[in-house]
Simulated scan of single mutants.
Amino acid sequence: MIPMSLKKIASITNGELYGKNITIHHISINSKKIVPNTLFIALKGDKFDGNVFIEEAIKKGCCAVITNQKIISFISYIIVENTTIALGQIANSLRNTIQPKILAITGSCGKTSVKEMTASILQKKNNIIYTMNNENNHIGVPITLLKLKEIDKYGLIELGANNPGDIRYISNISEPNVALINNIYHSHLAGFKSLLGISKEKSEIFSYLKKNSIVIINLDSHHLSQWKKKIKNKKIFYFSIEKKKQAIFLLLILRFIHIKHVLSCIHQLEK
């Protein structure tokens, strides 16, 4: 990530800074992974509380802390209302400071494979960051974006969801330039109850698209009609397996037109 002052981070997160306004170069949510000039964010969830690891993070050498409560410490710290939201706010700020092209991928299945294949292609000629393993949730996506450096041209972000609202939240953080819904099939029904519920959730990837964005859609997906309003006036590319006959027919037409154009050019040159 690019260096940030604690004063700026406090402004981004609507937090209150206690102590000196120093510059940090790294952010970690793991007290065991602390290097010099690291800001430790004490995340708090239903089954864990990062505040209990603040002392360990300080002993490891962190230079500042983000927490949701006052602490007794000789190092600087920022108090915010919600540390998880603060993590996302910092990541979004960095994303908009560096301005890489963000490619976001979601779907019921296969999204990790598509992400890995796309990453292998892009990184051959560009500096990129991308979500590692299955870090595709409200914590993993911000952590991925925090890896952005000024030289990075692309960010490849996988978006996963177990409950309604998940995709919308991480789409707001990543603000995609290109959004792909790989497919809509029976998966995670426990959280969404039906295919319609899954389709509505996945379509939230379109909620925070950047200007002049591109949408890529699988025509074989269920409930495509639910997406019409959200993708209106967007540049859209389609792909399909079930409708491959139509796709092949279109490809043959385009190829025929291309061949005719080439032959015409050759004919003009021979004159």
Rank of each mutant, 00 (worst) to 15 (best):
M4I: 10
M4N: 07
A10E: 05
N14T: 10
E16D: 13
E16M: 09
E16C: 09
G19D: 03
G19V: 12
K20T: 15
I27P: 00
S28E: 08
N30D: 15
N30R: 06
K33I: 06
T38V: 10
I41T: 00
L43G: 10
K44C: 01
K44N: 08
G45Q: 04
D46Y: 10
G50C: 09
V52Y: 11
V52L: 12
E55I: 06
E56H: 13
K59H: 07
G61V: 03
V65C: 00
V65T: 00
T67W: 03
T67L: 05
F74W: 05
Y77K: 00
I79V: 13
V80W: 03
V80P: 01
V80Q: 02
T84F: 08
A86L: 06
A86N: 07
G88A: 09
I90E: 00
N92A: 13
S93R: 09
N96P: 04
T97I: 10
P100V: 02
I105W: 00
G107C: 02
S108T: 09
S108H: 02
S108D: 07
G110R: 05
V114E: 02
E116Q: 13
A119Q: 07
S120N: 12
L122P: 00
Q123C: 14
Q123N: 13
K124Y: 07
K125H: 15
K125T: 14
N126H: 14
M132L: 09
N134S: 12
E135C: 07
N136F: 11
N137V: 11
H138C: 14
G140R: 13
V141F: 01
P142V: 10
L145A: 04
L146Q: 03
K147W: 03
E150A: 04
D152K: 05
G155I: 06
L156S: 07
I157R: 03
G160F: 03
N162R: 15
N163R: 12
G165R: 05
Y169H: 13
I170R: 01
I170T: 14
I170M: 14
N172L: 15
S174H: 07
S174M: 06
A179T: 02
N183L: 11
N183A: 14
H186I: 15
S187R: 07
H188P: 02
A190P: 01
F192N: 05
S194K: 05
S194A: 10
G197N: 10
I198R: 04
K200E: 08
E201T: 06
L209R: 02
K211T: 13
N212C: 09
S213A: 10
I214T: 15
I214D: 08
I214A: 05
I216T: 06
I217N: 05
H223C: 11
H223Q: 14
K228V: 13
K229N: 15
K230D: 10
N233M: 06
I236L: 04
F239G: 00
S240V: 00
I241Y: 14
I241H: 12
K243S: 06
K245H: 04
A247W: 01
A247N: 08
I248M: 08
L250S: 15
I253W: 12
L254D: 08
F256S: 15
I259G: 04
C265G: 03
I266D: 11
H267D: 14
Q268P: 01
E270S: 07
E270C: 05
